[in-house]
Computed example of a mutant assay.
Amino acid sequence: MLSLLLLLLLNGSFAQEQFSVYFESNKSDLVKKELLRLEDWIQKNSKSKIVAINGYTDEVGSVEYNDSLAQKRVDFISDFILDKVAIREDFKTRSYGENFNQSQNKAENRKATIYYILEKDLERENEILGIKEEEIDDNLPLHEKIKLAKKGTVILLKDINFFQNTFAITPESNGALYDLLFVMQNNPTLKIEIQGHICCVSSDRRKLSLERAKQVRRFLVAKGITMTRVSVTGFGINHPIYPIPEANEEQAAANRRVEIEILSK
């Protein structure tokens, strides 16, 4: 059985894919033909992610019996796919029994349906599922932001600045650097990616954004944080907050920034 469950309502407005297998009357295991279809689906979707499995029955039998049978069908599929296809952490199984829009063809009602997201769409997973990320109050201290952050959350490191056209960190940045260090020390399983951004130019030919991210990592490593916990990337001018060329210094300052992305907690 899969242990982590969440109520995930599925409706036609979602863009996830779906795949159904069909059961014999009063059965909760699959005949060979349907089992082969399921195995084929698993092979083709080893890099997809399952978000839910729903179970259904026809109207033969009592409501209580059908609810139980529908759940047994879900359990059969859940056990069969375990460790074969990635499953969303808040995955949910649901048994509808006969309480759904029944087909006139009873055989079509004896089924379990897998809802999943293709590998190519995983970057849009929450968007597809209609899940909105809660915004973290920008005024919170860094350690509070980290507590609220989830994997994939990007946090601006305020008050980290560099001397013009270099990757040398200014002395007034020390407070922000030590805030980050304390967060890493107090969250020993935390892994981050430091992301550098620059402003005001047409291209990052000198890879200054990457060097600035590396410089922040050098500080952390020098203070005892293992390099395996800190990766770096330089986005150059590819992800500006304001269009380049910026209209004023305020916009330029916003564009030249260092952020961290939560890789794991």
Rank of each mutant, 00 (worst) to 15 (best):
G224S: 09
K111I: 00
A213C: 09
Y22T: 00
N174K: 14
A86L: 10
D29A: 10
D159G: 08
S62W: 03
S264Y: 11
V221I: 03
N66P: 01
F100R: 01
N174G: 15
I146E: 02
V85K: 03
E64H: 02
Q215V: 05
D58P: 04
I241A: 01
L7M: 10
G175H: 09
K191R: 06
S95R: 01
A107G: 10
G224T: 05
V31T: 14
V60L: 09
D179E: 12
E193R: 13
I128C: 15
Q43D: 15
T113M: 03
A213V: 08
I192G: 04
P240R: 01
I260D: 09
K150M: 14
L210Y: 05
L180W: 08
D159M: 00
K49M: 14
L263I: 11
N161R: 13
G97Q: 08
A168C: 08
L177I: 04
D121S: 14
G61V: 00
D29Q: 13
L180H: 06
G196M: 05
S264N: 13
N186A: 11
R206M: 12
V258D: 07
K47M: 10
I192C: 00
R110Y: 01
E119A: 15
H143K: 10
E119V: 12
D204I: 05
R124G: 08
L10P: 14
R110W: 01
L82V: 14
S48N: 08
F163D: 09
D138R: 07
